[in-house]
Design a protein around this nucleic acid. Structure first.
Length: 787
RNA sequence: GCGCGAGUGGCGGAAUUGGUAGACGCGCCGGAUUUAGGAUCCGGUCUCGCAAGAGGUGGAGGUUCGAGUCCUCUCUCGCGUACCA
């Protein structure tokens, strides 16, 4: 291997420039008011202009979790694309901000700590160093002066500070935005301190709730809805069960409509927007209250088809519904209790797996259909979810598949109330049509029937127009050590915010990172830390990993600021107009990070801390890179490509070029090492286009004989004699300009693969020129430079 | 089931507005040079045909002077989501 002749001395070239880029802070961006040091390239690029007078371009990568496994080839795909665009934008005169950092809180470091007793900080620091080394060896043009690490106390101080902003705010429906909790008005007649406190705590954007949550016994922690996939934890695939626990929640539901509406204002792919829309899950309909026969109460349901009210022949409550206990009759009690117990035992996974067969029990009570005063039976069934709508439905088996299945199984009334198109059976028809058998609604098309019945319900006081969302509030606490502690203490059973002056709240030192035997979070082990002198105790839960990643793009703007999370000036300059101009990352964060970050940003916007309503204007998802066998890369398949190995054989430039040449950025595509060799050969042809062959041979021999390394050797290289100061021929001009046009347009459209192919065409042509005009080749190098 | 996306040579992929299908690269075949080569250079490479020519973008129709591109139906694969009332 040692004798293998390189196409060109990439090891010398890349080492030389990468070193210079870091030591000379060549890609440093300057904040308003800052001055570039004498001799810094910024002065050359922008002719001494003040930073704040320049048009900015903020180009962001999703920062990685620095795992022990190191970088895989998927990371640099997006990073290379943004790097090329960053360099392109710089060449076009934009003042580019292109930072990198570490999303370093997380489960793997903690689990390693539990196993070995080694502090997660040690593991994390090692991993960060390795990631930084790998990323720098790829030659990216990051401004390392703005590097952030979410586990650094200088960083998470501000994560905790933002939490306090949420804690100290409420969502005012009248203004449709968050406001200081101080503006909250108490209801008429609410005088007692206790009542007022409970009312206030119930309105905060960060609040404590004792609701059923997703508990993962294997991980020993609760998880957000977004972190549960098919009833299993997104991380590790462990079973998740429902369990009632006291937890911190963030009121993201208050922002449901704005999160939905503002998707219209940003440039994301349709599929990504659609994923967020589906997750938010807006549906318009009505709430209808059915009085219970012989009782004072009513069962409230949500329906998107109030026009089918005449077809409601029974009702179903979810097994967890609060009225089940009081409404169940003596005769049915045993059956009902058995059913509820069975439902409670099932994990979410089992509940969905067993979904094919409808089950349920009659509770003995009846409700009155307000529209025709008919008595209809009330059942419980686990096909009705406690967590959606009101946790209860009116069943219209005539026009709902699930209700029909249930009605047939239990022999309940089925009534057709919507006319189906010609040739379609009315029963089972779920589309829109003319109402029938529906009293005063009969003959009306669905839309009108809906409007009419809602008016009628509102008039009678037994229902109203409603919009319902699937989005749930965000479960924000975790039973872990390696996360941000909450800036919260408890006193007499009530929570209190710590003052800003107490930030950052550092986690205590521990010997054992496991939860306690009572199931308390690991932080509860540190009794000295938990118990304060004044009798208060600290909150022992920690924040989820998303806390750090929710706002890191803001910290980059002013990463070393000790006074504020970001200075107002820096925020206004870099976020001006569009926020982040280009954000590239994987699609796996569609309803996690990207939704959470939008939510936090809107809260900060409402409170006046940031100047845009949306954080990320344009977002591009890079596709997944598959293994050489066309399968997803995984350790168990043994098809993982290590970038270090590729770099050793072909160098960073070939690696970068290959990742871009594989195909369109957004597409999924398989790795092929022969393809790397192909672009490597292309770079060799570029080299030979310029370099005197004899001088390169000399350099190669110099290395072999004296073992010499280092940049100085490169001075031996001479430019080839065929390159001269002549005017290009019209034909040569044409070839060059076709290349300029194609590369420029493709870079604007982020079509890196075809830009590279255009440069290959140029090189193929130019290789045949006996006399090569210096200016023509120099211009070509400008095109190649960003890559 | 629903939503989104994609089907083009042996492979990755080009074809930006409906206008020479297969750019560029890999692989393969042949040649030159070389002690050697994961080196370089030259030529070839969608299918059928000696050729002229004919056919060809998952499948079936359609619009058009002209369709990979537009329309209708249909098949396959990927991603997301799922008893959301």
């Amino acid at each position: 291997m040692a004798s293998l002749r390189r196409q060109y001395p990439f090891h010398l070239i890349e080492a030389k420039w990468q070193k210079l880029w870091v030591s000379g802070e060549v890609f440093r961006a300057f904040n308003p008011g800052e001055a570039a040091p004498e001799g810094h390239p910024f002065g050359v690029r922008h002719a001494g202009a003040r930073p704040e007078s320049l048009a900015k371009y903020y180009i962001l990568d999703m920062f990685p979790y620095p795992s022990g496994a190191g970088l895989h080839v998927g990371h640099p795909e997006g990073y290379t694309a943004t790097d090329i665009t960053a360099r392109f934008m710089r060449m076009r005169g934009r003042h580019v901000l292109h930072p990198m950092g570490w999303d370093a809180f997380g489960l793997p470091a903690e689990q390693y700590a539990i196993k070995t007793g080694q502090h997660p900080r040690v593991t994390t620091e090692e991993n960060v160093s390795n990631f930084r080394r790998q990323i720098q060896s790829l030659g990216f043009s990051y401004d390392w002066g703005r590097e952030v690490d979410t586990t650094d106390s200088g960083y998470f101080k501000w994560s905790q500070w933002i939490f306090l902003q949420l804690y100290n705010s409420w969502f005012n429906p009248a203004t449709n935005r968050a406001e200081s909790i101080e503006t909250l008005k108490y209801p008429e007649g609410m005088e007692s301190k206790e009542e007022r406190r409970a009312f206030r705590d119930g309105k905060r954007l960060a609040f404590v709730s004792d609701a059923p949550v997703n508990w993962c016994p294997e991980l020993g922690t609760v998880l957000a809805n977004e972190e549960v996939v098919d009833g299993k934890s997104e991380v590790g695939g462990h079973p998740v069960v429902r369990r009632s626990m006291r937890q911190w929640m963030l009121r993201i539901t208050a922002y449901a409509q704005r999160l939905l509406d503002d998707l219209e204002t940003i440039d994301w792919s349709d599929s990504l927007k659609e994923m967020q829309r589906n997750w938010i899950g807006r549906s318009e309909g009505a709430k209808v209250r059915f009085p219970v026969s012989g009782a004072e109460c009513a069962v409230e349901v949500f329906t998107t088809r109030p026009d089918t009210l005449f077809g409601a022949t029974y009702m179903v409550l979810s097994p967890e519904h609060e009225l089940v206990d009081s409404l169940t009759t003596q005769e049915q009690r045993v059956l009902v209790e058995e059913y509820r117990a069975a439902a409670a035992r099932k994990s979410d996974l089992e509940r969905t797996e067993l979904a094919k067969e409808k089950t349920g029990v009659f509770i003995g009570a009846h409700a009155v259909n307000p529209v025709n005063d008919e008595e209809i039976p009330i059942w419980i069934a686990d096909y009705v979810l406690a967590s959606y709508g009101t946790g209860a439905i009116m069943a219209v088996p005539g026009h709902d598949e699930r209700d029909l299945e249930f009605a047939r199984k239990f022999d309940l009334d089925v009534r057709a109330v919507v006319k189906a198109p010609e040739g379609v059976e009315s029963v089972g028809f779920v589309g829109e049509g003319e109402s029938m058998n529906s009293g005063f609604l009969s003959g009306l098309p669905t839309a009108e029937a809906k409007a009419r019945i809602i008016d009628w319900l509102e008039e009678k006081g037994c229902g109203e127009r409603t919009i319902n969302f699937k989005l749930r509030d965000w479960l924000f606490s975790r039973q872990r050590y390696w996360g941000e502690p909450f800036p919260i203490v408890w006193r007499d059973g009530h929570h209190e915010a710590l003052p800003e002056s107490e930030l950052p709240v550092l986690p205590p030192e521990l010997d054992d990172y496991k939860p306690t035997t009572d199931g308390d979070p690991p932080l509860a082990r540190a009794q000295d830390w938990v118990n304060l002198a004044d009798g208060a105790t600290r909150e022992t839960n920690t924040m989820p990993q998303w806390a750090g990643s929710c706002w890191y793009y803001l910290r980059y703007l002013d990463a070393r600021n000790g006074e504020r999370f970001v200075s107002e000036e820096a925020e206004r300059y870099w976020m001006d107009d569009n926020g982040v101009d280009l954000y590239v990352g994987g699609t796996e964060h569609a309803v996690l990070h990207l939704l959470y970050a939008r939510f936090w940003h809107k809260v900060l916007f409402d409170l006046g801390h940031v100047s845009t309503a949306e954080p990320f204007y344009k977002l591009v998802n890079q596709g997944i890179i598959l293994g050489e066998d066309g399968q997803k890369m995984s350790k168990s398949r043994g098809n993982v490509i290590n970038p270090d190995v590729v770099l050793a054989d072909y160098g960073a430039d070939a690696f970068r070029l290959y990742e871009m040449f594989m195909g369109p950025l957004e597409m999924m595509k398989p790795w092929n090492m022969e393809g790397v060799a192909g672009v490597y050969r292309f770079l060799g042809r570029v080299w030979r286009l310029f370099v005197d062959e004899a001088s390169f041979t000399e350099l190669e021999q110099a290395q072999v004989t004296d073992g010499g390394q280092g940049a100085a050797l490169l001075d031996m290289i001479k430019i080839d004699e065929s390159i001269t100061d002549v005017e290009p021929t019209p034909e040569q001009q044409k070839v060059l300009h076709a290349c300029i046009k194609k590369v420029t347009e493709d870079l604007e459209g982020m079509r890196y693969n075809t830009a590279i192919s255009a440069m290959m065409i140029f090189v193929n042509e130019a290789s045949g020129w006996e006399i090569k005009p210096r200016e023509t080749l120099r211009t070509f190098l400008l095109l190649l430079n960003p890559f």
